[in-house]
Design a protein around this nucleic acid. Structure first.
Length: 223
DNA sequence: TGTTGATCATGT
DNA sequence: ACATGATCAACA
């Protein structure tokens, strides 16, 4: 695979955003000389990793924003031809034992969502992977109103974990953030550090961003 | 048919 | 083990 240097400045990144708009997945795979799977059934994160490589993201699988020095998180988002988001977006793990006194602004959720480069991809399931087209990427920062929603959701969901109310946690909670299972399969268990003594094994969960805040993405214009 | 819970691949 | 990247697919 061809390696792309990380963008040094925000201007460089924005320039690459302009260049990637309108390309198909096949275009990018060809440029990077990577083999493209027929579908995503066994490589669900493949497109995200392809776009990361193409734009020069550096964080790998570290729990940090993708463009570390710019503090920007890259997220691909599948959209319909009319710009409606087709999936929710994984943000980060939800600690089984949240640090005592953890605040919203110091949380990993905030760090990841503070600056997001959304890369919408027209990805209706009827469209073959190779033909799916990148729409216009855009930088997003939460507004004060949006932050209030996220902060409230994060606080309520974190409280449930802190209080050990794991049985009450479902994806129905939260307005813009959900807590959903995040594991290889439903049998995986792990212990929170405060619970190791009692051997209370719980299922790992992750914070999921329901795309209700940037509710519509440019699909047709700007390509 | 939209949502919620489950699952897959990869890297350190 | 546990973090990243997400989409799949069963079921309400």
């Amino acid at each position: 695979m061809i390696t792309i240097q990380a963008p040094k400045t925000l201007e460089q990144l924005m320039h690459r955003m302009d260049l990637i708009a309108g390309l198909t997945i096949a275009d990018i795979a060809e440029e990077l000389q990577v083999k493209m799977p027929e579908n995503l059934q066994t490589e669900k994160g493949w497109v995200g990793q392809l776009v990361e490589a193409y734009l020069g993201a550096t964080a790998g699988n570290l729990p940090e924003p993708d463009f570390q020095h710019l503090g920007i998180e890259l997220k691909t988002i599948p959209i319909s031809r009319t710009g409606a988001p087709l999936e929710t977006t994984y943000v980060c793990v939800a600690p089984l034992s949240p640090a005592l006194g953890e605040q919203w602004r110091t949380s990993l959720v905030y760090k990841k969502l503070a600056h997001v480069l959304w890369v919408p991809i027209i990805a209706e399931r009827s469209i073959p992977l190779k033909d799916r087209q990148i729409a216009m990427p855009f930088l997003w920062q939460m507004t004060p109103e949006q932050e209030q929603i996220l902060k409230t959701d994060w606080g309520e969901l974190t409280d449930l974990i802190v209080l050990g109310k794991h049985d009450e946690i479902t994806a129905k909670l939260g307005e813009a953030l959900q807590l959903r299972p995040k594991a290889a399969d439903s049998s995986v268990r792990s212990a929170g550090s405060t619970e190791k003594a009692t051997q209370r094994m719980r299922r790992q969960k992750g914070f999921i961003f329901a795309p209700v805040l940037p509710s519509r993405y440019c699909a047709n214009n700007l390509i």
